[in-house]
Amino acid sequence: MTSPASAPRPRQSLRRHRAARPVLLALSLFLVGAVYAAVAPATTSSADGAADAQLIAQGKDLFAVNCASCHGLNAEGLAQQGAPALTNVGAAAVDFQVRTGRMPMGNPYAQAVGKQNTFTDDEINALATYVGSLGSGPKVPGEDQYNPDGLSAEDVARGGDLFRTNCSACHNFKGAGGALPNGFVAPSIEKTDPAQIWEAMRTGPGQMPVFAAGAIPDEDVKAVIAYVQQVNATPSAGLTLGGIGPVAEGFWAWVVGIGSLVLAAVWIATRGARA
């Protein structure tokens, strides 16, 4: 670089122009704004068309009727009902909770359990879109995000390893479910829909932690889903006895094993001898 003394005069004068500072300030502000606009997450759903506005309005009505009594008219949550704010849970959370029948819940003081869902697909879509429009949060996934078809055997086996590391501690080694403290349970996921497994991992319903995309990308979620499906589709080596491990095995060893052998012993002893 040339020293300031030897540099050409016109450039120096331009730099020292009276308007230089305000212009630079304006330029840098513009740059920051532009970068922010490019990087920042969208606060409203991408399709802001008239159809979407109509969907949101329909969802808002449904929300007011079905959800607001606990979650508040503006989804701000009601602490005394134990109902959380839904402003940043995302559409995927609504899709999961309503589609599995967990919401609306019967008893707000116990764990939300899956039951028969009474909403149509359109209604769920409207509700999810409305809640999704209130803030950030994961969207309802597309099939490319959760459909495990076409994974290689190695991928599925890797999914099994991920499953045993992240899921089996609560959901059992094949997803049969397990007990959690204070009366909560981790439900069986042996027959759960792939989209719902994706949504549960991303939104963390109930006691479940959130498994964010940064920790477990969609490819890994697919692998986990594939493993759960395939391990449950694999033929068993006889009656599975519930697939809950050694407790059931011990129970049946006594009932079937010792039980039948005692009956045999009684039969042998009462036969006496017929010489």
């Binding site: 045993r164 590391t165 059992n172 050694p246 006594w254």
Partner: peptide, 16 residues
């Protein structure tokens, strides 16, 4: 699955 000290499963019980 194979033993991995980082993993544990619900329903971990010994034989009766």
């Amino acid at each position: 699955g194979p033993y991995n000290p980082a993993q544990v499963t619900a329903g971990s019980q010994p034989d009766w």
